[in-house]
Amino acid sequence: MKTLHFDILIHAPREHVWRSTLFSPTYERWTATFSEGSRYEGSWEAGTPIRFCGPNGDGMVAEIAEHRPAEFVSIRHLGMVTNGVEDTTSEAVRAWTPCFENYTFSDEAGGTRVRVDVDVFGTHEDWMAQTWPEALLALKAVCETPT
């Protein structure tokens, strides 16, 4: 499995960037780049399950492997959700699980550096390589726009 790396400098305090990345309603705004109407179900607390779903409820099942608020969050993807049913054991899912999506937030002159390291599998590499930079630009706009 290959890991792709992305980063962006956001001109906002680290705590604000971290909250905007993970919590509603800003989470839904920047993740719409991946899927309009995307959302999560669950908690960002380490060791807890979480689902990442599109508007129809299909998506991915994961757990929060590690979370240090405003510093680092690691998502361990464990399977798929299709028609409301979790699949963590099929041969197709076992071919790529677990895979990780890690976010690192660090102070940098003028703001916060967000680094994303994401494992990719199958035919998703090109799509991820194109979509992640767009998503990070959307996150930057969310964080830098006064509310």
Rank of each mutant, 00 (worst) to 15 (best):
E108V: 00
F72E: 15
E86T: 14
N56P: 10
W30G: 02
S106D: 06
T131P: 02
A65W: 08
V81Q: 10
R14F: 01
R51F: 07
W127L: 07
R113S: 01
V17R: 15
T21H: 10
E66N: 07
T31F: 09
L22S: 05
S20P: 00
G47P: 03
V114F: 07
E66V: 00
W96Q: 14
G42E: 09
G110K: 10
F52S: 13
P25S: 09
T97Y: 00
M60T: 11
T48D: 15
D126M: 06
M128A: 13
A70Q: 11
P69Y: 09
E41Y: 04
G122F: 00
R115P: 02
F52R: 12
Y27H: 14
G79H: 09
I75M: 11
F72R: 15
E63T: 10
N83Q: 15
E15D: 15
R51N: 15
C53R: 10
F121R: 15
V116H: 05
Y103W: 10
T33F: 03
V81M: 09
E108H: 10
H67D: 14
V17M: 07
Y103M: 03
T33S: 12
R29K: 15
S106K: 04
V85S: 08
G54C: 05
R39A: 13
S43D: 11
G111W: 04
T82M: 13
A129Q: 08
L78M: 09
G47M: 01
T82E: 13
W18I: 03
C99A: 12
V85T: 12
H77A: 05
S38M: 14
A95F: 00
A62K: 08
G37N: 09
M80A: 10
D126G: 11
I50F: 11
M80I: 06
F23K: 10
R29I: 07
R68W: 08
T88I: 09
F52M: 08
D87G: 05
E63F: 00
E36F: 00
I50W: 06
R19G: 08
R115K: 12
A32K: 14
S74Q: 15
A65K: 15
T89W: 05
V116W: 07
D87I: 01
G111R: 13
V114W: 07
D117N: 07
R68H: 12
A70Y: 12
F52V: 03
D126F: 00
S38R: 14
M128S: 13
R19M: 08
W30P: 02
L22W: 09
Y103P: 01
P55G: 10
N83R: 13
